[in-house]
Every structure is written in C-alpha cells, then in structure tokens.
Design a protein around this nucleic acid. Structure first.
Lengths: 150, 150
DNA sequence: GTTCCTGCAAAAGATTTGCAGTGAC
DNA sequence: GTCACTGCAAATCTTTTGCAGGAAC
C-alpha cells in the first residue's frame, strides 16, 4: 500500500538534518515529518493540516507553513505548483522516489510519473544553462483517461 | 528591442480567435492582447495591470483576471507558476517562441530558455503517458550567475 | 434593445506575521 | 533560565464574485 523504500528513512534523515541545522524538535514538526515521509506525492498545506487532524495530532496551519518553510530552506521538501491556486510540498528524495507530475486540467487529478530518458536529458541540459541548477520540475497538463473519454 | 517575429501576429490571431469564439471586442481586452503580444516571457496579473497603467490605458485588475481566464480557456495563453506566490501568464506560441523557465531562487530572476533535445524528449515521453497531453511546463530552479558568485 | 464587457467594491482563499504561552535543552 | 516552537488571531496578498452602468452588435 505504501512504497517499499525510502519511507521511514526520509523522516529520520530529515529529523537529523534539522537538528544538524540547529533546530529543536517539537511535537508538531515531528508529526509533519512523519506524515511527509509516508507520502509519495505532493500535499498542500491544507491537506497536511487535515491529514494530521484525522490522525488526532492537530497542528495549526500557521505552523504547517512555518515548518514547510524551514524544510524547504534546507532542501528537504520541494515546492510544487500545479495550478489549483495553492502550493504543494513534497519530500525531496534523490534517486528512487524522484518524479514529476501529470495534472488533469478538467478534474484536477494529480499523478506522479517518472522517465529515465527525460531525467538524463534534463541533467544534460542543466549543464549548459546559465544557472547553478538545484532542482527541476516538470508538469504535464492534459485530460486524464476518465475525462478524455467523457 | 522586441523580438523579430510572431508579435503583432499573435495579438491579431488572438483577436480573431476570440471573435470566432463569440466574444465581443472591448477596449480593455484589446489593450491586454496588445501588451501580451509584445511579451516574450510570462507576466503576472499585477504586472499586466501596472504595465497598462504606465501606458495610460488603465484596466481594472478584475478585468485582467477575467480576460486571462478567457484567453486560457481557448488556449491563447498558458498559466505558468514559478513559486513567487502568484500565477503568471504567457502567450502561447507554437513553434518559435515556445520556451521554458529558469528561476533564481535567491533573487527571483526569471529567464526563458529553449532546448530542442528537451522538446523532442518531452514529446516522446508524452506519447506514453496515461493522459491526453495538451501542454507541458518545465521550471528549473537554481542560483543565477550573479547570485551564485556572491 | 439585448447581451456582453468593465470597473468598483466586497468576498473568499491562501499565506504570513505578531504576540504570548509552553516546551526543549 | 533561556530561547526555540507552537497556536491563535489579525493582517496581507492574490484571485474571485456581485452588481450596476456603458459599449458592442
């Protein structure tokens, strides 16, 4: 039901990175890290808040935003914007777990996808750009199978 | 000072497409089309409003949003989100003019870039996705030359 | 004359900030 | 005990909506 690798690992790794960066470990932050570690795709701040509430570990929305800022700062999560008027965040995993997004413009369905050829090309292109590249993000828009049929 | 091709063309083409789609032509809409036709990269709603104001052709912000919605609807502009907490819009040009974006995460500099190899790869990948693809968007993040040096 | 286009003002959301209390070290 | 972490409430900013007057057809 959940992806086989890189899960509990990510949360642990993130917690270590945070403490290395001088942050203390409060309960809200840990709850957020645990939740994120289990995700395989991007969540919005509101979704994070709701997911935590339904686990009976409520966290204020302001705190969600603050924690996400910290995590983004040290590159543990990446901001992903896919056109629903809000930002989504997802854990950064190098190697397996790295993926991009397909968005159905009709129903809003969000699906991850990966492609090795595309990754290689992006990496090659990155080397010739006037930018010290840290991340890339690819969003493909269209109509999902369900919507395309109807 | 402006790009050599596809300029006045785009605005004219857009106006025709709109009228074909049954829209009437009001002054505000035309002013926005003209402005967009001259752009080579993405603008936010606020930037559009300001640019028009400084040309002495003020347009209400609500109208900017409404017109951008119409234009997006008939695929004359594409929404681009690059992480400054707001949406940007850019004229869709097929063939020359199509490009992607580099964003400096430190200073916010936005630069267009193109790469044929990348386009070919994306097109190939698109064919094997479970989605009837209409558009793609690639954003590369990093530090621009100025910021990377400092 | 009818229907669409616009501007203005108010509303709705998402995100950020200020402040005070609690908890980690 | 000090300073970071968190929640709450208020503020800010972007985007959307309702409504009324004016313009296009």
């Amino acid at each position: 039901m959940t992806a086989p690798t890189g899960e509990s690992t990510w949360a642990a790794e993130a917690e270590r990175a945070l403490s290395d960066a001088g942050y203390r470990r409060g309960g809200a932050r840990r709850a957020i890290l645990e939740l994120l570690g289990e995700q395989s795709c991007a969540l919005s701040a509101v979704e994070i808040e709701h997911a935590l509430t339904s686990r009976r570990r409520e966290v204020s929305r302001a705190t969600v935003y603050r924690v996400m800022d910290e995590l983004e700062e040290i590159a543990l999560v990446q901001r992903v914007e896919i056109g629903q008027g809000m930002v989504r965040y997802e854990p950064v995993r190098h190697g397996p777990g790295h993926h991009h997004h397909l968005v159905c413009d009709r129903c809003g369905l969000l699906q991850p996808f990966t492609d090795d050829e595309l990754e290689r090309t992006i990496r090659r292109v990155s080397e010739r750009l006037p930018l010290r590249v840290s991340e890339h993000e690819i969003v493909i828009h269209g109509a999902c199978e369900t919507c395309a049929d109807s």
